[in-house]
Amino acid sequence: MKRLWTPAWIARHVAMVVLVVGFLGLGWWQVSRAAAGNAISWGYAVEWPIFAGFVVFVWWREVRHALRGPEAPAEREPTAAGTRAADAPTRPVVRRPVRVARVPAAAHGGEDADLAAYNRYLQWLNDNPGAKPGDYPG
Rank of each mutant, 00 (worst) to 15 (best):
I50C: 11
A52F: 01
G53K: 04
G53H: 01
G53M: 05
G53F: 05
F54K: 03
F54I: 10
F54W: 09
V56Y: 12
V56H: 09
W60M: 12
W60Q: 07
R61L: 10
E62W: 00
V63F: 04
R64H: 08
R64P: 00
A66S: 08
L67N: 10
G69T: 07
G69C: 07
P73N: 07
E75Y: 02
R76D: 10
R76F: 06
R76Q: 07
E77H: 04
P78T: 08
P78N: 00
T79V: 11
T79P: 00
A80R: 08
A80F: 14
G82P: 00
G82Q: 10
T83Y: 12
R84Q: 11
R84F: 13
A85I: 05
A85W: 04
A85S: 06
A85D: 06
D87V: 07
A88F: 02
A88R: 13
P89A: 03
P89N: 08
P89G: 06
P92I: 07
V94H: 13
V94P: 01
R95T: 15
R96E: 13
V98L: 13
R102T: 06
R102K: 15
R102W: 07
R102N: 11
P104K: 03
A105I: 04
A106Y: 01
A106S: 14
A106K: 03
A106F: 02
H108T: 15
G109R: 05
G110V: 00
G110K: 03
G110H: 01
E111I: 01
E111T: 13
E111M: 13
D112P: 01
A113Q: 12
A113T: 05
A113I: 02
A116F: 03
A116D: 05
A117P: 00
A117F: 01
Y118D: 13
Y118Q: 11
Y118P: 01
N119C: 06
N119Y: 01
N119F: 02
N119I: 06
R120I: 04
R120C: 00
Y121F: 15
Y121V: 08
